[in-house]
Amino acid sequence: MGPAIAVIALALAATGLLWLRRRLLVVTVDGPSMEPTYHQGDRVVVRRRHAAQLRLGDVVVIERPDDDGTWPAHSLPQRWLVKRVAALPGGKVPADLAPALAEQAGVDVPPGSLVLLGDNAANSYDSRYIGYFPADRLLGVVRRRMSPTAA
């Protein structure tokens, strides 16, 4: 292979890697809220998505609100939560979301909002406490676990 072809191949490979980095990210699971599906320290591959591309049951990564429940300005470092989609905009709020959305049970989820739950209901900071998550804080959908849980 000549030097010009090698340079072109290298440029194409670099472009492909840049494209993948914009579409795929790796996030580390922090906490037990998604057990038994994901565990503390699991690394997951996340594909960037918009809320309009979500389906019920998708596991998503979304920005975490501050401890006082307010949503921070988009600044670094961002803190992420891994949760499962329980209701999408226009869908019905599930009936078992006390206390934060208890009065909203059966009501349509407002535009730009998501209802997200952890698989470990006893230990999950999710829509049961936060209420609606703003869809514009969504990072993407978990595609797969990158590394197994350490034993």
Rank of each mutant, 00 (worst) to 15 (best):
A13W: 13
A6Y: 10
V82D: 02
A11N: 08
A151G: 05
E103M: 10
M34Q: 14
V141L: 10
R84F: 00
L76D: 15
A98H: 13
S33V: 01
V115T: 09
R55F: 05
G41N: 04
D126A: 01
R49Y: 04
H39D: 02
R22K: 13
D96I: 05
Y132F: 15
I62V: 14
D108R: 13
R137M: 07
W80M: 10
V29H: 03
N120Y: 06
A13C: 11
A13N: 11
A51I: 06
G91M: 15
K92P: 00
T15N: 09
V59K: 07
R23I: 05
T28K: 11
R22W: 06
L10Q: 11
S124H: 01
V44Y: 08
S147R: 15
V60S: 04
V60G: 01
Y132D: 11
Q40V: 06
A150P: 04
A14T: 12
V60N: 01
D119G: 02
V46C: 05
G57Q: 06
P94K: 11
P65F: 09
R84V: 00
A98M: 07
A150I: 10
R144S: 03
G90W: 13
F133Q: 12
L117S: 01
T70N: 12
R64C: 10
M1T: 06
G91E: 15
L117R: 06
V45W: 09
S127P: 01
P89H: 15
L117F: 02
R64W: 06
W19S: 04
L20G: 01
H50F: 09
V59D: 15
V60K: 00
G2H: 15
L56G: 09
M34T: 04
R144D: 06
W80F: 07
L20M: 08
P89S: 13
